[in-house]
Each structure stands twice: as C-alpha cells, then as structure tokens.
Design a binder for these strands. Structure first.
Lengths: 253, 253
DNA sequence: CGGGGAGTTGAATGCAGTCAACAAATGTGG
DNA sequence: CCACATTTGTTGACTGCATTCAACTCCCCG
C-alpha cells in the first residue's frame, strides 16, 4: 500500500465523477465534499485493503481496478460477497458494531480516494445532504445484495453465472464507451466462490455459454455480444438489471 | 389495514424500546424523536404492507408480529429476503431510486409505528445523530444479508435450515425472557422460499433435526434446547451469530 | 362433516460436487 | 532467453444431494 497526499488529481477532471455521488453534491457544496478526501492510496494486485475484524478509520472510493469483498469460512474456502468496481464506495462503517464483517483484496492494481471516517461525523452536521447521499449508497448495496441472494438461492448454475457476468459487464461498460471488451481480472474460481459453485462447474457453464455465442472471454477480457439474450438465460429482464447496476454508486471527489 | 392516531401508547412504556434505536436517542432528544411518529398501524395476517414498485411515504417500526419481505419471481414463486421481527425497521427509502425493490406481507397480525418519510429530511438537519442511527440500522441489514448470502451459497440444506431457525430463535428470544418456546408463525414452505429449497426437502431436514433432538417445533411454536449444538450444524460459531442478530435494530418511539 | 392448507412419505430423475489427471497460460529465476 | 514452477483452465467418470411428481395424512376452520 502506498499513500499519496501531494498533487492529488483534480476532482473536476475525474473520469468517474459522474457515476459517483459527490458529482452531485459538488456543484452545491464543493469545498465541504473535497475537504473530506485526505489522500489517494494504491494497492498492488493481491494486497489486502482490510481484514475481517478490523475497525476502519478510512472509507474509500474505488478509482481504478477491481476489488473483491469476501468472508473466510470455517471450511477453509471463502464466500465472495461483492465485486467492487471503479466508483464503488468501500469500508464505510458508523454503527455500533464498527467492526468489518468481511475482508477486501485487490484483484488488480487499484487506486482509491481515502476519506477519514471521523470527518464524516463533523461534515454531516453541517451538510445533511451527505447523510442522504450515503444512505442512498447503502440502499443500493442492500438492493444488489437482495438481487444476488435471489439469483443464488433459486436459479440453476447457468443462470447464476449469466447473472454475474452480465452485472459486471453492465457496470464496467458504463465506465468505458465504445470499446469492444471489458477488462476482466477475475478467475473462474472467483466466480465459483461468489456463486457457491465449484470452479469445475463454472468452467462447464462457461463453455456452454461460449458455444451458444452468449459470451466471449479470453485473455482477461470479456465481451457480451447480446445482452438481452444473456439476460434471458440469467432469468432477469435486462432493463431491471440495468436499473439496479447503473446509477449512483459512491461519493467521489 | 387500520390506522390509529389517538391514544398512542407511551414510548417509555414500550417493551421493545430497549432493542430499538430511539431508545438511545430518546434520552437526549426525546421530543424530536417522538415528533416523527405519526400513528400506529395494524395489519391482519396475510395483508400486504407494501408491494414491489411502490414509492413509500412511511417507514415503520414493527411493534408486534412477524412480517415477510420478498420478491416475486418470473417463475411464479417467490424469494424471501428477510423475516422482520418486532423491533425491525421497514420500508425506509431515501435514495434516488425511491421505489421498493420488494414486497412485504404480514404473517401474523401485526402492529407498527409509522413514521412519515418526509419528516426524516427535516429532522436529520437538526439531529445528525438520527442519520448515524439510521446508517447503523442499514448496515446491520446489509450485514445480515451478507450472512444469509454466505449460508445459502455455500452450505448444504441442513446447515441452511439450522442457520435460519437459530437466527429467528435468537432474535425472538431477546424479546421475551424465561419462556419455553417462541411463537413461530411461518410455514415450512416459507423457510423453503427463504433458503432456495423445496418445502419437501425442508420437511426432511426438519425431521432429521427433530430426531437429533436439536429442535422442537409444533403448534406454531419453536424451541431450541441446545443452541450451541445447532450452531455447529449451521456451521457458524454461536457467539458470532448472536452478535449479528442481537443489537440495535430500529428507531422506535 | 367436508374442504383446504400444511405436513409427510416414497421412488425416480438430474444437477452439481468430487476426485483425478492433464493442458494451457502465466510468472520466476538462472 | 529458456527451463521450471505455479496458477488457471479443461475433460471424464462416478457419486450424491436435492428436486420432481404423486399419493396420502393430519389438522384446523367454517
């Protein structure tokens, strides 16, 4: 982990600001919002951002790269709770049990904007909008969790994989326009750990989806030629999925 | 649904106040907190509190009875997201997409305290503590969702059922001390819909758990003689589960 | 007393897991 | 730059948990 406090990039030039929440706040309360950010931080692929049990002091907006949020299980393997993509808000915790219930690890090299948590208390006093902004983010997170829960609990493996790939594809594509594939730094085993399947079975599903022409995936890149068709396999209407996956994700400065 | 605005019970006499969040706020900001409550509302068993797609105007603290939160699936059946018990906070929504992503139905006759959502905006301006209180609740909800996700994704049916029964038991037992069973108004099919199993398989698991002496369940009542033993089957340490399930749940007046 | 919902039981099917071996891709040190 | 090691992906055979379908019982409620 490296921390940079000097020469931070200007917020107004930030490519992901439009997908992040401070984008909206900034117009009205530019200074308050900016004042929250303390530093930019980088982690290398494979580094832990935080561990289950940690008491966090900083929240992060993910600026670049992918992060996996997961819980370690007694049995030795892990349950992936969420894939965090640029624009996502991580590690915000204000409740009584201010202990992280999961760990986070960088899957690719990542850059984050750091916000000391204690400053939130002060700023929210003067800026109630921030409280609603954060509520909105948490609600989105819960909504996505509901969506995952539904898919994982009651659909066959092919639908689960289709759902996850399509979700990630939609989220990543909103960040980059006009490209013919998205970077896809996760492994089939990661997908298995997210969906409660074995990597072997995920592999079989991948091949089946490839044969049907629904996905193209090689060299750490993913392309979905026909989102509607894949949504059908995922057993969720495309517009519904897009509504959940796109939209305000994080405060960003 | 019936609404009562007269002769509301006094908050300080409320049995569940201690498990709810306003319990803490009240000492400092009694009047502000009370002012939020507009009415008590009752629903009969089987009545819907709200539907997926609704734009809510009121949030509720569940005062008595159980409520099921669920999503209807294309396939015709439903995915249960959460069982709400007395003390739980329902239907709070402030984000941009202020549309409910799920429906709620009363499983037993229920009483709720209603809080008009528009008042929250005003009060939070003067009372930032309320913002944190609500954040805390939402975090707990997300944490429980994580916990469900983990259990449902990666454990066999017996562990899933054990996990759910134990969770409900622990939560309900904090509300009533010294009793030899908890009211258990849900059916095996409800459990199946929550865990992504068939009711037939849930039934087989029930019988297996009964034979092992881990649960006693009849006449809409549940008793767990040995929580530690059942936690072992659920593949989660008892103290960890208790930490997630007990504690601040809802603002309550 | 009859009807309907909830719970129970059995047999057959199938989806996904397990084990094992191998191939391909990626990374590392000499 | 090549040789080797490690990780990731691929394939096949076998097993088993959970589903499906169907029939039947129990219990509550009108």
């Amino acid at each position: 982990m490296k921390t940079h406090t000097q020469h931070l990039p200007k917020c107004k030039d930030c490519a992901i600001r439009s997908t992040a929440l401070f984008g909206e706040l900034e117009t009205k309360h530019l200074d308050d919002a900016r004042a929250l950010r303390s530093a930019q931080v980088t982690f290398e692929a494979g580094e832990h951002l935080y561990h289950e049990g940690d008491i966090p002091t900083k929240a992060y907006t993910l600026h670049q790269g992918w992060v996996i949020l997961f819980k370690n299980l007694r049995s030795g393997d892990r349950q992936i709770l969420r894939f965090a993509l640029p624009g996502d808000f991580l590690c915000y915790k204000v409740g009584y049990h201010n202990v992280m219930d999961h760990s986070a690890i960088a899957v690719s090299d990542v850059t984050l904007c750091a916000f000391p948590l204690d400053r939130f208390r002060d700023v929210i006093g003067q800026l109630p909008e921030l409280a609603f902004a954060i509520s909105s983010i948490t609600e989105t997170a819960t909504q996505r969790c509901h969506s995952s829960l539904t898919t994982i609990a009651s659909h066959p493996a092919e639908a689960k994989v289709a759902f996850l790939l399509l979700s990630l594809f939609i989220r990543e594509m909103t960040l980059r326009t006009g490209e013919m594939c998205i970077p896809f730094p996760i492994t089939q085993e990661d997908i298995a750990d997210a969906l409660g399947l074995t990597s072997i079975h995920v592999n079989r599903v991948f091949q089946s989806l490839r044969k049907q022409g629904l996905i193209e995936c090689k060299n750490r890149c993913l392309w979905i030629p026909n989102k509607t068709a894949l949504a059908k396999v995922a057993k969720i209407p495309l517009n519904e999925l897009e509504e959940i996956m796109i939209g305000t994700a994080a405060p960003h400065c």
